[in-house]
């Protein structure tokens, strides 16, 4: 899976380079969790994206669309040529995830804070129909400044949604500055534990650690799970990582791509 993650990182960069600029930092930070989900855990079928009873993923931090599209491309949902249509007029791959445009996207997201509520609704629905699906949701640490994240967390816990596994992309950066300088989560583990979640805090760019945490989360009963992914924004490409806060959205040129290909070999 390490190699797959590298390939998806490259596809993510190629996707963004095709339009010259995009949300590269927060896309690269979640490539490892996307890899583990799609190549180890999620019950999905690229030939039947709307399969009944499938596991679902809500990428609530919808601006990480390029990483999701790269993963879906690697899985065979969309072609490599389509991957290079990001944000082009009339594309099926808009900046933020759109369930009505892209096969394999389970919820439209991008207005931050809303996706987790939708994932909670899916988890309730799965419990009603008893399809034994898992609902996965990726939220951002900056996004967690939105009050709706905490509304949804309270209610997920109230309803004992143990089929809901949430990932916090804890990269400590947002557009304006380091998250800890703007409006800090301070101790996300304590926060979600106090909300009644089963919380694990791990190296969010470590494939084995992610796999292990998901296995544990699936065994957990009567509580929703929170897996805090301590990540590096822009992970995997040194010059992007080094940009720090400036890598939220940055230009990726054809020359940059050559360097990226070299680094991800």
């Amino acid at each position: 899976m390490q190699n797959i993650a590298k390939e998806i990182r490259l596809l993510t960069c190629q996707c963004i380079a095709s339009i010259g600029q995009g949300h590269i930092g927060g896309s690269l930070s979640i490539v490892d969790v996307l890899t583990v989900l799609y190549y180890k855990h999620m019950n999905v079928d690229p030939t039947n994206p709307k399969k009944t009873g499938r596991d679902r993923l809500v990428v609530s931090k919808g601006h990480a669309g390029p990483a999701v599209y790269a993963t879906l491309c690697h899985k065979g949902y969309i072609s490599q040529s389509e991957l290079l249509t990001l944000n082009k007029f009339k594309t099926n791959l808009p900046s933020h995830c759109d369930m009505n445009k892209t096969p394999g996207i389970d919820m439209t997201t991008g207005s931050l804070g809303q996706g987790l509520s939708c994932a909670v609704g899916m988890s309730l629905a799965s419990k009603i129909v008893q399809d034994h699906a898992y609902i996965y949701c990726i939220i951002g640490d900056g996004e967690s400044q939105e009050g709706q994240i905490w509304e949804a967390s309270m209610f997920a816990s109230q309803k004992k949604l143990d089929n809901l596994i949430v990932f916090l992309d804890n990269n400590n950066m947002q557009i304006d500055n380091y998250t800890s300088n703007i409006n800090s989560l301070i101790d996300p583990k304590a926060k979600w534990e106090s909300f009644g979640f089963y919380v694990q805090s791990i190296d969010g760019n470590n494939i084995d650690a992610i796999d292990d945490a998901i296995i544990k989360a699936k065994k957990n009963k009567d509580k929703p799970s929170m897996i805090i992914l301590n990540t590096i924004k822009g992970k995997g490409v040194s010059f992007i990582e080094q940009k720090g806060v400036a890598n939220h959205s940055m230009p990726i040129t054809e020359d940059d791509l050559k360097q990226i290909i070299e680094e991800l070999k």
Binding site: L116, S117, C118, A119, G121, M122, A125, K159
Partner: peptide
Amino acid sequence: RCFDVGIQEANMIGVAAGLASYGF
């Protein structure tokens, strides 16, 4: 099939959207 989310209207709309995406 009845859910009282408490005093959280924003969450209620999102939960409804999630239920709808499942065919409810």
